[in-house]
Design a protein around this nucleic acid. Structure first.
Lengths: 270, 270
DNA sequence: AACGACGTTGCGGCAAACGAAACATGACCA
DNA sequence: TGGTCATGTTTCGTTTGCCGCAACGTCGTT
C-alpha cells in the first residue's frame, strides 16, 4: 500500500461529486469492490484500512449487507466474504448484457474458423471486463474467464475500445500509472496515444505479448446503434499462431465477425 | 424515539430492525434485487412502485449506483439495468463459494441435532464422491471418509443427485451393470428409475440397507445458483436409528440443512 | 499480566438523506 | 392542435438517519 489516509477520514476529493449521490451507498459499494479473487475474505479492520473508512462505519455497512445476503460472515475467523445474493444479481447482470447473447453465435463460428479462443469484452471503470468466452479447440489455447478484468492499456480489447471512447476516458486511463506487465507493454502515454490513433485508422488492435509473454491477440471494436463503443471482440492465442500481417486471414475473420455483431446491434457502417 | 415517527409515512413493520443497519444501503440493495431475468430493464417509476419507495429516492439511488457501475442507464428508453461492475463482483462471489466450506457449519449443527454421521457428497464420474464428513457422537456410528467413492445406485446420496441430473447421466449409470451389494440393492433399471421419480417428487432419498446390511441413510440434493446439482447431504446411521417415516425429525432436519446450504450457494427455491 | 488488535455497542451532534412539490419532456389521444 | 397523463429530473427546507468518538469485551501474543 503506497498511499493511505493516516487518520483523517472523508477523502476530500470525491466528497461533492454530484449533489444527488448517496454517500452510504457509495461506501457500501466500495466495500463490495474491495474483495478480490485472490483475497476473498476480509475482516472489518482490514476493510476499514482498504477503503479508508472508520471501523464502525464499515461494521455497520457489513451488518446491513449481511442482512441482505450481499456478504456473509465467517464466524470462525470473523471475516466476511461476498454473499450468495450477489451471485444471483451478478448472474442477472451478466445475462442482461444482451451484447453477449448477440455475439455468441458469431464467436462460436469465429473459433471454428480460426481455431483460437475468442473473448467478448466491455468497458468497465477504466478497464476491460470479459463477459463471454469461447475456448479454442486446440490442445493448448488461451483460457479466458468471464467476469475478470484486464488492463485497458495492456489488452488488445482495451485498446480497441479506448481508441473509440471519448477523450476524457482516455485521459482518465492515462492519468493512472500504466503498469508494465511485460517488456512490450505500453507505459508511455504519448506512445499509447499513437497506438490508439493507429487503431482508429485501421479498425484493428493488436496485443503483441503486452500482458503475457507468448500470448498475442487481435481485437476489433464493436459499436452499438448510436455508433458508440459497445465492446470489443478478441481472438487470443500463442504468439506463433497469431499472425501480425495486414492481410492475415485471422485479422480478416475477426474484423468480419466484429462488423457482423455491430450490425446486429443496429450500427450502420458509414 | 422509541415508539414511532409522529405522523408521516414510514410505513410499517421492519422499520427498526436492528439499530445498526443502514437504511439507504438496504434500499439500494432492494433496488438491485428488483431486477429479474425476465425483466432486466426497469424505469424509475417502475422501480419506485416495485420496492415501495418515493420516485425521488429511487432516482438518487440509481444515480449513485450508476456512478459505481452497478446499474447502467439506457438513454434510449430512460430505463436502467444491472451494470458491469456487478458482473465482476458476482463472479468473485461465485468463486469464493466453496461447497464444503459452506456446508461444514450446517453439517456440524446437523450432527448435533440428529446424533448421527453426516456426509457431503458430490457427483464424480458416475459415482458419489464423499468430500466432507462429520462423524456422529455416539459410541457406534457410521464412519465415513472423505475422498472415497460410493456407487451411484447403492447410496442415498448418489440417488439424490442422480434424480436431478440430466437423463443422459442416468442412462450412463444404468448402462453399466448394477452391482448387488445386499439383497436390498436396486439392480433393475426400471425399478431404479421409479425410485428416482419418487425422489424427485419428495426431495428426499433413502438408503435402506442397500449397500451394507444394518446401515441406513437419508439424503437430500444440494443445488447451486443455476439450479443444478451441486452435491448431496447425507445422514447415515445404524438401521434402528434412522426412521423411515415421512414426518420423522431426522428427515426434516436433513432437508432443512440441505435447503440452507443450497440457499448459500445462491439457489433460489421456487 | 499487560499489551495490542480485533469486532462490537452506546450515544449525541450534525451533516446527509429524505419527501413534497415544481419543472421539463414526451407519448398519446381527442 | 391542444390537452392530459405519464415519465425522469431538479430544487429546497426539514429532520432523520447516519457518522465518528469512545468505551467495552475478547481473543492471541509478548
Amino acid at each position: 500500500m503506497t498511499r493511505k489516509t493516516p487518520k483523517p477520514n472523508t477523502s476530500s476529493t470525491d466528497l461533492d461529486r454530484h449533489r444527488s449521490s448517496i454517500q452510504s451507498v457509495r461506501r457500501a459499494v466500495s466495500l463490495l469492490k474491495a474483495f478480490e479473487p485472490n483475497r476473498p475474505e476480509l475482516g472489518v479492520s482490514e476493510l476499514s484500512r482498504a477503503v479508508g473508512l472508520h471501523k464502525t462505519t464499515v461494521y455497520r455497512l457489513l451488518v446491513t449487507l449481511k442482512e441482505e445476503g450481499f456478504v456473509q460472515h465467517n464466524p470462525a475467523n470473523d471475516r466476511y466474504r461476498l454473499g450468495p445474493s450477489l451471485i444471483r444479481v451478478g448472474r442477472i447482470a451478466l445475462d442482461s448484457v444482451d451484447l453477449s447473447k448477440q455475439a455468441m453465435p458469431h464467436m462460436r463460428a469465429l473459433v471454428d474458423e480460426v481455431g483460437e479462443t475468442a473473448m467478448l469484452e466491455i468497458w468497465d471503470d477504466r478497464r476491460t471486463l470479459v463477459v463471454a468466452t469461447v475456448d479454442g479447440p486446440r490442445f493448448t489455447h488461451i483460457i479466458a474467464r468471464a467476469g475478470y478484468h484486464l488492463p485497458a492499456h495492456g489488452s488488445s480489447g482495451g485498446k480497441a475500445m479506448l481508441a473509440f471512447l471519448p477523450s476524457e476516458e482516455v485521459d482518465k486511463v492515462l492519468a493512472r500509472e500504466l503498469k508494465k506487465y511485460t517488456e512490450n507493454t505500453f507505459t508511455d502515454p504519448g506512445r499509447l496515444r499513437e497506438e490508439l490513433a493507429q487503431i482508429r485508422a485501421t479498425g484493428v488492435s493488436y496485443d503483441r505479448q503486452e500482458i503475457d509473454i507468448g500470448v498475442c491477440a487481435i481485437s476489433v471494436p464493436i459499436f452499438d446503434h448510436r455508433g458508440e463503443i459497445a465492446g470489443a471482440l478478441t481472438v487470443a492465442g500463442p504468439m506463433q499462431r497469431i499472425p501480425q500481417g495486414e492481410d492475415s486471414a485471422v485479422r480478416q475473420l475477426v474484423k468480419k465477425a466484429g462488423e457482423a455483431i455491430s450490425r446486429e446491434l443496429g450500427y450502420l457502417a458509414k
